Measured scan of single mutants.
Amino acid sequence: NQASVVANQLIPINTALTLVMMRSEVVTPVGIPAEDIPRLVSMQVSRAVPLGTTLMPDMVKGYA
């Protein structure tokens, strides 16, 4: 089972991601792979992401 990136806190719209905002977790459906966490740092979210939400490619500007 592949771990995905999950929000560790509420991430407001247009916030630049930092390591403390993200954790890896095995979830369904699968989201952005956990190994991409270093690449996500400083990228902005395109919408508010609630705590515990799996990050999907369309939620991060410039990821897809």
Rank of each mutant, 00 (worst) to 15 (best):
V27Q: 08
A64P: 14
A16W: 09
L17A: 00
L51H: 15
V5M: 02
T15L: 05
V27K: 08
Q2E: 15
P12V: 06
M59I: 06
R23T: 07
G62P: 04
L55C: 02
M22H: 00
Y63D: 03
M59F: 08
A7E: 00
A34L: 04
V26K: 05
L55A: 00
T53P: 01
T28R: 03
R47Q: 12
A3M: 10
P33Y: 13
Q44H: 09
P29W: 04
S42A: 13
L17Q: 00
V27P: 00
V20P: 06
I13Q: 11
N14V: 03
M22A: 01
P50R: 08
S4N: 01
E25D: 13
L19K: 07
L17R: 00
D58S: 11
V6R: 04
S46E: 14
G52S: 09
P29S: 04
V45A: 11
S4Q: 02
P50M: 15
N8T: 15
P38I: 08
M59Y: 08
L10K: 08
M56P: 01
I32F: 03
L19M: 12
M22G: 00
L10V: 10
L10T: 13
P33A: 13
L51N: 14
I13P: 09
V26M: 06
V6W: 02
K61N: 09
I13S: 09
Q44E: 06
P12F: 07
A3K: 06
S4P: 00
A34V: 12
V49P: 02
T18G: 04
V49N: 02
I32T: 00
G62N: 10
L10I: 14
V41D: 03
S42T: 11
T28E: 15
P50K: 10
V20E: 07
V41S: 04
V30N: 10
V60Q: 01
A64H: 15
Q44W: 11
P57S: 10
V45Y: 00
L55W: 01
G31T: 02
M21S: 04
L40F: 02
L19R: 10
I32G: 00
L10W: 09
L10P: 13
T53W: 14
R47S: 08
T18V: 06
V20S: 15
M43W: 12
A48F: 09
V5Q: 00
N1T: 15
P12S: 10
T53C: 09
P57T: 10
P38G: 11
Q9R: 09
